[in-house]
Simulated assay, not measured.
Amino acid sequence: METRFLCTVLAASLLLPLQSLAAEQEGDNNTTVRDADAESVLDPRIERRHIKEADIDAENFEIGLYTGILSIEDFGSDPVLGVRLDYHLSEDVFLEGSLGRSKAGETSFETLNAGVQLLTDDEREYTYYQVGVGYNLLPGEAFLSENRAYNNALYLMGGAGMTDFAGDDQFTLSLGVGYRLLINDWMTVRVDMKDHIFNLDVLGEDKTTHNLELTAGIGVFF
């Protein structure tokens, strides 16, 4: 009987350390699983991007210079230089006054008939004065790089004025389309295409002429 009691005590003393070691291993495994689950959860913290937005200055006036090509009907295409002054009534509508100058070349009739001059040098000077209204049809943003966006707009224009050409002042209508890109809060880059329409009698008949102009320029708000 005593021998059996001693065997029972000896077996219990051997099992207790084994059970303790198993419990420790199980605890370590549970901790590892909890750590893995914690790492798998998405971090709700979002790092905010710092964006610097370039707004148009509070000033509503814009002055600009432009240059390009003017195709004078029957007289070829020649460089044109001009200045414009805009007043922005709102984000969508603006008024514009412009002054442009060019000089007409020779007609095909003059080229084919050497010595024939339909106009004098002074009469070939082409100067126009116009006022018009523009409407921003598609304002938006242009992404020229991965981290930088620029305000821009596609707009329509219409106006009227006078054209001094061929020794006479001609009433002129103007229709066009343009694109404006805001480089920063005070400078713009513009591309415009216009049709200057007026009646002209140089080749023996009074006809309506379409004089296409393509220009690019810069503007400054003040």
Rank of each mutant, 00 (worst) to 15 (best):
Phe198Leu: 09
Gln170Val: 03
Val131Ala: 06
Pro139Val: 01
Leu173Tyr: 11
Asp168Arg: 09
Gly132Lys: 05
Glu110Gly: 04
Glu73Ser: 11
Lys207Tyr: 07
Val116Ser: 11
Gly204Met: 03
Arg124Asp: 02
Lys103Ile: 02
Leu85Thr: 14
Gly158Thr: 14
Thr188Trp: 05
Glu106Thr: 06
Leu173Gln: 06
Leu99Asn: 00
Val202Thr: 14
His88Trp: 12
Tyr155Pro: 04
Leu200Arg: 15
Ser98Ile: 05
Thr107Gly: 07
Phe75Tyr: 04
Ala114Pro: 12
Ile197His: 14
Val93Ala: 07
Ser102Asn: 02
Thr120Gln: 07
Phe109His: 09
Phe75Arg: 04
Thr172Arg: 05
Glu125Tyr: 06
Asp122His: 06
Asp206Phe: 00
Gly115Cys: 11
Thr111Tyr: 15
Tyr128Ser: 07
Leu181Asn: 08
Ser174Glu: 11
Phe198Thr: 13
Tyr126Lys: 01
Asn152Trp: 11
Phe198Met: 09
Met187Asn: 05
Tyr179Gly: 07
Arg148Trp: 10
Met187Glu: 03
Phe75Trp: 01
Val93Trp: 14
Arg124Ile: 07
Asp86Arg: 10
Met162Thr: 09
Ala104Lys: 05
Gly132Glu: 08
Phe143His: 05
Glu123Trp: 08
Leu144Lys: 02
Val191His: 02
Gln170Glu: 10
Leu99Ile: 08
Glu73Lys: 12
Ser90Leu: 01
Glu73Leu: 07
Leu95Ala: 08
Gly161Asn: 05
Thr188Val: 13
Arg84Tyr: 15
Val191Glu: 07
Thr172Ala: 07
Pro79Cys: 05
Asp192Met: 09
Tyr135Lys: 01
Val83Gln: 08
Pro139Cys: 02
Thr107Tyr: 03
Gly140Trp: 00
Gln130Glu: 09
Phe109Ile: 14
Gly158Gln: 04
Arg190Gln: 14
Asp122Met: 02
Glu110Leu: 04
Pro139Glu: 01
Leu85Gly: 10
Asp122Ser: 12
Asp192Arg: 10
Tyr150Ile: 06
Val189His: 08
Trp186Asn: 12
Tyr126Ile: 03
Val189Thr: 10
Ser108Asn: 13
Thr127Leu: 14
Val177Cys: 12
Asp206Thr: 07
Met162Ser: 13
Leu112Trp: 07
Ser90Pro: 03
Tyr179Leu: 04
Gly132Trp: 00
Phe109Pro: 02
Glu106Leu: 06
Asp201Arg: 15
Ser145Tyr: 02
Glu205Met: 09
Val133Met: 09
Gly159Trp: 07
Val189Trp: 13
Leu173Pro: 03
Ala114Arg: 13
Asn199Asp: 15
Thr163Ser: 08
Glu146His: 04
Asn184Arg: 01
Leu119Phe: 06
Phe143Asn: 03
Leu173Thr: 06
Tyr87Asp: 09
Gly76Thr: 01
Asn151Arg: 13
Leu112Ile: 12
Thr188Tyr: 01
Thr163Ile: 04
Leu119Lys: 13
Gly176Arg: 15
